[in-house]
Every structure is written in structure tokens, then in C-alpha cells.
Design a binder for these strands. Structure first.
Lengths: 182, 182
DNA sequence: CCTTTACTTGAGCAATCACTCCATAACTGT
DNA sequence: ACAGTTATGGAGTGATTGCTCAAGTAAAGG
């Protein structure tokens, strides 16, 4: 997963994967039907983790909106540390790597929709708890939030100065905060 | 340029390029030193056009901030029409395609910095014309604007419903509008 | 009109690509 | 311990990759 995440689909060769998995071609093709099959498995793993993380963060929190704000601010920290294979979002990379229609693109779109759905639920809960004005559209807010994350993770990939990155994340998090009724 | 823009660097083969350019390998390698050389030329062309477009839009306009808002809203329209090779930003695609340090990545970063610089100048002008509160940081606003564009163009690539895409663009444009002093 | 220079052509290079195959090693149930 | 089943290893498949170069064509110069 890390290899595909960093290098992307096309730039990752089976020789690289053999080394990373410590498996020989025969075993790889017995386990996953093809290179694409392995990639799909990696995407599923990534999306599963991301969705679980978001669920824990925003659906279990007492103040969902505040949790989402914290999530935005945390992106700044993830860009410096080398703990993560890449600062960018693997789903976005996959989306750009597969611009034409196909089963793989559909898989990516499904995962992106799943994430958006979780965000929408979080915003719905935020509304119920009075963190949002009445009549707010959770789906609309979810798309906006996801757009922020997409943009921020690309900026992170760019290698912006840490303090600039932090300010940027704070700015966008503040916009979410501006939604709170007075 | 269109080919690299749509398919990305690694997924574009020389055979594709030969057909698109109607040139044979020898001529291509005489004109550009390598596949990477041709890619650099395509990136330069793309960035040049994008920067020129932005300059015309935001630096010549009487109300720079309003022009930038209009630019955000216009992204929704660009996602449906098949006029453009791809809805995504070629520079972002290139950035994600070349995650590790190298001359190519440096070129992409330079172009991204160039775009950001133009946006910063536009915000500076907006400040001078009273469209922004005193003490606004043009560079900071430019990064935010660019982050919006990154995110929006990815959403466009995703193939969102046109009305949802339009609402999203309007939402982000409205955020810029919220900067205007009362 | 011939020579010289500049450019294009396309066959073909080594290397790499994703992938297959089957002998062999490693488990499993009896 | 042994037959039956499954998983692995790794050489090797044809196709494709980015790229080179000698031969050929066009353009320019006198």
C-alpha cells in the first residue's frame, strides 16, 4: 500500500512490489489476480483505514464540528513527519492516475463517496447538537470540507514551510468555525 | 500537452506522443532531448498559459477580489464542457506524479510558486482598492485561494453533479466575499 | 545544377514491463 | 508416516518501454 501510495500505480513496477512484499510473482498472482488486483486491495485498505479514522474522530466526538476543525489543523502536522508514506491522499492520487472510465475509477469514486458520506453524517450530528445554524445542508458542508482536505493535502505534498502550512490549516479550520451560530 | 495533461507522465508512452505530434522518434529526440524534455516543455506551456490567464483576469480587473471570486465560480462550468482535456490541474497532477526530489519536481514547484505569486499580487491590489480589511496578508490569502482551486479542480475531476459542483464553487467564492469589510 | 548542410525517417536496440508456468517445498487430514 | 492439497520460487514468456542511429530526403548556398 505504501509503495502504491507514494509512487502511484503506473510508476510502481512488479519488481518493486516483489521486494516490498517479499513475495515472488507466482505468489502475488495467486493471491491477487493481477497488478490491478493488488492495487485495488491497497486502495481498499487505505480507504478502510481513513474511513475508520474519520468515524472515530467525528462520529464519536461530543462536538463533531470542533473535531472536524481539529482534523483540518492536524493536517499541518502530518506534512512534516515522515511517519506517513506520503502527505497526499492516496484516493486523490488514484483519481488523477485513472482519468478515464473503468472499474478502477469506479472503485475510487465509491471510496470517495464513502468518505463524503461519513463527513455528512458528522455535520448532521453537529447540526443536531446546535453547532450549526438550522437548515444547514450536511451534504453540502461535507463536500466543502472534503474540498478543503483535498486542497490542503496537495499543499502539504508541495512541501510548504511548516509555519505557513499551519497558518493555512488554521485559516480553513476557522472557516468551519464561522458557521457556528452566535 | 493535452496528452500528458490527461494521462499523466508515466501513463503516456512515446508511441502515443508520436501519433499525437505526428512526429517520428528521431525528430522528437532532436527537438526535445528526451521524454522528460518534452514533458517539461508541456509543463512550461501549460503554466505559461495559466499564468497569463490569471494575470489578465486578476491584475487588469478593476475589482481584483471580485474577479477572483468569478474565477472560482467559473471552475464549475469548466468541469462539464469537454473543451478542456482534463478538469484537473496539470501542475497538481505533475506534483503527485513526481513525489521524490528531482529536477522535474523543482520545475513544478517553481511554476506553482509563480501562480501563487500572481495571486498574491492580485490580493495586494485588492487590498489597495479597499476590497480587503487593512493588514490582510496577500501571501496568506493567495495560498488559501490556491488551496481552494486545488480542491475544486479535484472535485471537478471526480465528476460531481453539475448543480452540486456549482453550489460548491459558489460556497467557496462566498468565503472570499466574506473578507470584504462591512 | 551541384554541393553542403539540416532535418526526418523507421527499423531496431537493450532493458523493462506485466505475467505464466511448473517443479518443488510446505502444510493438512488421516 | 503418508497421500492429498495448497502455496511458493524463480526462470522465462512475448510485448512494450524509452531511445539510437545509419540511411534517406529536403532545403539552402554558391
Amino acid at each position: 500500500m505504501a509503495l502504491f501510495w507514494v509512487r502511484g500505480y503506473h510508476a510502481t513496477s512488479l519488481k518493486d512490489l516483489e521486494a516490498a512484499l517479499n513475495m515472488r510473482p507466482g505468489s502475488i498472482y495467486a493471491a491477487f489476480r493481477s497488478k490491478e488486483g493488488l492495487y485495488r486491495a491497497a486502495l481498499d485498505l487505505y480507504a478502510g483505514r481513513m474511513q475508520a479514522e474519520l468515524r472515530d474522530l467525528a462520529l464519536a466526538a461530543p462536538a463533531p464540528l470542533a473535531a472536524l476543525q481539529a482534523h483540518l489543523r492536524a493536517i499541518a502536522g502530518q506534512s512534516c513527519g515522515t511517519q506517513r508514506p506520503s502527505s497526499a491522499c492516496m484516493l486523490v492520487k488514484a483519481l488523477l492516475d485513472h482519468p478515464q472510465e473503468g472499474a478502477l475509477r469506479d472503485l475510487v469514486l465509491t471510496h470517495l463517496d464513502g468518505v463524503e458520506q461519513i463527513l455528512a453524517e458528522a455535520f448532521a450530528r453537529a447540526g443536531e447538537m446546535g453547532e450549526l445554524p438550522r437548515g444547514s445542508d450536511p451534504a453540502r458542508l461535507a463536500r466543502r470540507m472534503q474540498t478543503y482536505v483535498f486542497g490542503l493535502k496537495i499543499q502539504a505534498q508541495r512541501g510548504l514551510a511548516p509555519e505557513a502550512m499551519q497558518r493555512l490549516c488554521d485559516d480553513l479550520a476557522a472557516e468551519l468555525g464561522a458557521l457556528v451560530p452566535a
